[in-house]
Design a protein around this nucleic acid. Structure first.
Length: 265
DNA sequence: CTAAAATCCTGGTGGC
DNA sequence: TGCCACCAGGATTTTA
């Protein structure tokens, strides 16, 4: 559920406490989450300083002093905490990164979907991702060109990270509503004017999510307030805020999808 | 090629 | 109140 705005919020919160710190060790409590061989991770990470923390799609990127990149993906339920090493750990902490200031970076992840990668070549992790929708140089024409030769329904395509990066289930539904486009639409039938509305809607929705510091609910990520501004997501059978028609829920591409059948054509 | 289904997981929910 | 079946959901893998 952490999507682009939630991950961006986490990244911004971690820069202060972590940039300039040096890792001292790694404790792995749930080995399935570590996508680099654990001995290699434990051998290479200690001694590396955090030069910068950035975001790509829904990944956190820790730029390290030896040229390595540490990637963390929060997936469904992940969260990151910086706490004093003598403070008791929450039982859902799965990986512990020791720091040089008697603190620890703790990867808390109840559902165990989160992932950790340490690589020299970032392309191994993020090489196939589509463009960042909020990048300054991501223009309307770039967005339109993504749809060349594409088929299928709109919703699954928006969730495809190789198509466009960082959009997840919530922001896809909210963007379709704002654009007035039914998520079931075949993308090869979208008019230029509709693509323009969708481009603006995606950027506007993601920016709103960042402004509200992401969405918090279902005991997942906490701190943001975007959940109070959902127009369709999770509002099944409730009246559309524009026209009063009950919001419809159906499953598209295996994901719950919410839309107003009156406002979205 | 597209598309759907299965997979990984567990806290929360709804039914009884 | 307690038990339990069921579900969400990002990304990957498998099957159609």
């Amino acid at each position: 559920m952490p999507e682009l705005p939630e991950v961006e919020t986490v990244v911004r919160g971690l820069r202060g406490p972590l940039v300039g710190r040096t890792f001292t060790g790694v404790t792995v409590l749930w080995p399935n989450s570590i996508k680099t061989p654990v001995p290699e991770l434990q051998q290479r990470l200690p001694g590396q300083r955090i030069e910068a923390i950035t975001r790509r799609a829904k990944y956190l990127q820790f730029h390290l002093s030896d040229g390595d990149m540490l990637f963390l993906h929060l997936k469904m339920s992940g969260d990151l905490l910086v706490e004093p090493e003598d403070e008791p750990r929450h039982p859902h902490v799965r990986t512990i990164f020791g720091l040089d200031n008697a603190h620890e970076l703790r990867f808390k992840d109840p559902r165990k979907f989160g992932r950790v990668y340490l690589v020299t070549d970032p392309g191994q992790v993020v090489g196939k991702l589509g463009p960042e929708p909020l990048a300054d140089n991501f223009a309307l024409e770039d967005f339109k060109s993504l749809f060349q030769k594409r088929k299928g329904r709109l919703k699954p395509l928006l969730l495809n990270q190789e198509f466009i990066a960082g959009v997840g289930n919530i922001y896809a539904d909210e963007s379709c509503f704002l654009a007035g486009i039914n998520p079931q639409r075949q993308v090869n039938t979208l008019a230029a004017e509709e693509l323009e509305r969708l481009y603006q809607a995606i950027r506007q929705t993601l920016n709103a999510g960042i402004t509200w510091k992401g969405a918090s609910f279902d005991s997942v990520y906490r701190g943001g307030e975007f959940q109070d501004h959902f127009r369709v997501y999770g509002r099944t059978d409730e009246p559309c805020l524009t026209c009063g028609t009950p919001i419809v829920r159906l499953v598209l591409g295996g994901r719950s999808t919410h839309f107003c059948p009156q406002c979205q054509k």
